[in-house]
């Protein structure tokens, strides 16, 4: 598996995501936000957590206009894999690669804690390491993770089995408890929780590792 992790000037989970990819056996390259192209032969692009350009405006709004995001979008349109975590999920909705938007948390406060997620589908390379209905304890850390979409979109996400994860206990007001969603071709996952923070025993939990291992298994060279 060859992975590229995008680095915006305000990314702060780029290293964490790269480490998790590497632990799963991936070759990882970091891609600067001013770059216009992804490295040759990249299977999956990671868009990490953080505060891309400070996010003083809507989270991810400026990042969506960055040179590298045009390349990420082209990669997704070609059928490439993309994983957006936290701020990365916000960026993916702002670019239109994924539907909906992430609003301010219902409680209006930043929340950092480990929460239980319910795996809603194992039918994707991201969730193939889990069984549908599994519970996974994975940390969240965000101010704007309240997933919103119009009723048609929510219905479509449900009907097409594109809700990857829901919260067992909704921490932020997200519609239908949604924590992560898949693109129509199931090759793009955006999620607010941080699987890379539950990816080795020192983290106090390893429930996020199945995501990276599943990816590595699916994307290993044939």
């Amino acid at each position: 598996m060859r992975a590229a992790v995008v680095v915006f000037p305000g990314s702060n989970c780029d290293r964490d995501l790269a480490v998790a990819f590497q632990r799963a056996g991936a070759q990882v390259s970091m891609v600067w936000h001013k770059d216009t192209d992804l490295p040759e032969g990249v299977d999956i692009v990671g868009v990490p957590g953080g505060f891309s350009y400070g996010d003083y405006l809507r989270c991810g709004a400026i990042a969506a206009q960055s040179p590298i995001c045009r390349a990420v979008k082209a990669h997704a349109e070609r059928g490439g894999y993309v994983l957006g975590v936290c701020n990365g999920f916000q960026v993916l909705t702002e670019t239109g690669i994924l539907p909906g938007a992430l609003l301010r948390n219902a409680g209006l406060k930043y929340i950092c804690k480990t929460v239980d997620l319910v795996v809603k589908t194992s039918a994707s390379v991201f969730t193939s390491g889990y069984n549908g209905g599994d519970t996974a304890a994975i940390p969240i850390a965000h101010h704007d993770g309240n997933y919103f979409a119009d009723p048609e979109t929510l219905a479509a996400l449900h009907d097409q089995d594109r809700v990857a994860f829901t919260y067992a206990e909704n921490p932020n007001g997200s519609a239908r408890d949604i924590a992560g969603i898949l693109s129509e071709n199931r090759r793009v996952l955006g999620m607010m929780p941080h699987p890379e923070r539950a990816a080795d025993s020192g983290h106090g939990g390893t429930d996020g590792m199945a995501l990276f291992r599943g990816l590595a298994d699916a994307l290993a060279p044939a």
């Binding site: 702060n12 989970c13 290293r15 964490d16 480490v19 998790a20 957590g49 406060k109 930043y110 929340i111 950092c112 804690k113 940390p139 850390a141 941080h194 890379e196 923070r197 990816a199 020192g202 983290h203 106090g204």
Partner: peptide
């Protein structure tokens, strides 16, 4: 004091071995 410390990112950098709430915090 979870109302306080849950407003802080205690896990970024993915090396936190103990978050606030019970004695000293630990980072690898």
């Amino acid at each position: 004091k979870q109302w306080v410390y849950q407003q802080y990112d205690s896990m970024v950098m993915a090396d936190t071995a103990r978050i606030p709430g019970f004695g000293a915090g630990i980072v690898r």
